[in-house]
Design a protein around this nucleic acid. Structure first.
Length: 279
DNA sequence: ACGCCCACCTGGAGGC
DNA sequence: TGCCTCCAGGTGGGCG
């Protein structure tokens, strides 16, 4: 689930329920997330007010009123679910609800992560910017400053296929397997093309495609969020109709193309593309 | 330094 | 029904 648009959707869904509220109780039901939770984690969060929620790359930054930030990553299977007081009682905790926040207005947020590739780290704001997790990260794709020239500069000299380069968070952040495939399709660029050949007009096209797929997906998330923010709602869960992702063997959506979407494996990940529309 | 491979962990889908 | 294999939206460590 969670690439940039999904994380952003979760952020927007959590904000109205958490910002300005206080954590009255925190249950840490499993400590062995990707980064193990310290035993004293709960006591450091309990009693704190939430002052804001930001996003950097695929990380949520939950700002607390004591100058600390709770960094949350959803990994592959992480979700945040919201329950009002009544519904929380009628819905018993799932075995993968690893961290549960009870807010001072009775609402509850559950961090659920079956595969436990996600993490939560509490960091003092002074050291947040230099935190190991953010070291070497590339630019935010939705920043105005991110354009074709920026991307081309980051791809210069790199022989890896462009698809693999897009997944590398040092190139740019937030793009994962789905949106890498979708952006390359929209831009008409082959996923096998050597990264350093993406420059000039082609780089501009790819950047435009990346922004477009991410923004459209955030909009889709926003439009379905209303249905999911209700009790028990799973934030960030929404259906987007993909052009190529997970559509191997299905006709390419380009009018009159007549080709079939193909799947190949690059750097251990599935890539979906149209060999005719993408060069 | 770069690029590739794999492990981390659980669950769902599909084949037999 | 059950068992087996494959696959999954991310990341980072280790290796050549």
């Amino acid at each position: 689930m969670p690439e940039l648009p999904e994380v952003e959707t979760v952020r927007r869904g959590l904000m109205p329920r958490l910002v300005g509220r206080r954590v009255v109780r925190l249950q840490q039901r499993r400590l062995d997330l990707r980064v193990p939770l310290p035993a004293k984690f709960a006591s450091k969060v309990e009693g704190r007010g939430v002052t804001g929620i930001d996003r950097r790359a695929k990380y949520l930054l939950i700002r607390l009123d004591d100058g600390q930030t709770l960094i949350v990553h959803l990994g592959m299977s992480g979700r945040m679910t919201l329950y009002d007081a009544e519904t929380a009682v009628s819905h018993p905790l799932d075995r993968h609800d690893h961290v549960v926040f009870d807010m001072d207005d009775g609402w509850q947020v559950r961090f659920n992560d079956a595969r436990r590739f996600g993490l939560m780290v509490l960091v003092a704001d002074e050291v947040l910017a230099t935190h190991k997790l953010f070291k070497g990260m590339g630019p935010e794709p939705l920043d105005d400053a991110f354009d074709g020239n920026v991307l081309a500069a980051r791809l210069a000299g790199r022989k890896t296929p462009i698809k693999a380069a897009l997944l590398d968070q040092k190139t740019l952040v937030g793009v994962g397997n789905i949106y890498a495939c979708e952006a390359l399709f929209l831009a008409g660029i082959s996923p096998r093309r050597s990264a350093h050949t993406i420059k000039g007009e082609r780089a501009g096209r790819l950047v435009a495609a990346i922004k477009k797929v991410l923004l459209r997906s955030i909009e889709d998330g926003g439009s379905t969020l209303r249905d999911h923010v209700q009790p028990g709602g799973e934030l960030g869960y929404f259906q987007t109709r993909f052009n190529v992702y997970d559509r191997a063997g299905i006709a390419c959506p380009t009018r009159d193309c007549g080709q079939t979407v193909r799947r190949l494996v690059q750097a251990g990940r599935s890539t979906f593309y149209c060999a005719r529309c993408q060069r």
